[in-house]
């Protein structure tokens, strides 16, 4: 999973029968990113049919455990990857926002299915036209519902993003807001 180190051969003084020990050198930052990408804890925000597809992704047939993301948590405080799977109506919006804000940073959001991503075919009076109206989204998964492979691909994309050290969209929004606040302050001086 992206950890590349060099193999250092060591021999102990006085003994050449022991097998050589393996040593990897890397940076702490890279190590942390590797660990984060390999241990995403999903929080399912399942509101409709897409959540059923999510269930098949985490269960034995598709086995999300292969990607280190099988520890599904129903407490936002114990998870770092929110998967919004389903139609989010306006009445649900503040609940989604509240749960999202209770998650500890660093955190990522996957918008699963067209309902969560753009409202889908619910172009109507009661459905949010994409959850990015209220929470920053890292990966969108198209489909109605997306195939399990689609969601797995999204999680792999997210892992790549984390390993590259890119900030989550949440961080991008925070940074932008901080920069704007700084500018406003400078403008006042």
């Amino acid at each position: 999973m992206g950890l590349k180190g060099e193999r250092v051969e060591t021999t102990r003084p006085g003994s050449d029968t022991k097998p050589p020990e393996s040593v990897f050198t890397t940076t702490l930052d890279k190590m942390v990113r590797w660990a984060r990408a390999g241990s995403l804890w999903p929080l399912p925000f399942g509101t409709a049919c897409c959540a059923i597809e999510f269930m098949s992704v985490v269960s034995s047939h598709y086995d999300l455990a292969r990607f280190g993301a099988e520890v599904v948590r129903f407490s936002p405080r114990q998870s770092d990857m929110m998967i919004v799977a389903g139609t989010v109506v306006d009445k649900q919006a503040p609940i989604l926002k509240l749960i999202y804000e209770q998650m500890c940073s660093p955190k990522w959001v996957i918008s699963m299915g067209v309902c969560a991503s753009s409202g889908g075919f619910y172009r109507a009076y009661h459905v949010m036209q994409g959850i990015d109206e209220i929470v920053p989204v890292d990966v969108y998964v198209p489909g109605c519902p997306p195939t399990p492979e689609g969601l797995i691909y999204a999680i792999m994309k997210l892992q790549e993003k984390i390993e590259r050290g890119e900030p989550s969209h949440y961080q991008v929004v925070l940074d932008r807001e901080a920069a704007e606040a700084r500018e406003r302050k400078l403008a006042r001086v």
Binding site: D90, K91, A93, P94, A124, Y125, H126, M128, Q129
Partner: peptide, 24 residues
């Protein structure tokens, strides 16, 4: 069904089909 801050009545024929009201 609709939330507290919703205005109007959605199934009336003169209600615009995609007019939304946000709930904070």
């Amino acid at each position: 069904l609709c939330h507290r801050d919703f205005q109007g009545h959605a199934l009336r024929k003169d209600y615009p089909a995609d007019l939304r009201w946000k709930l904070l």
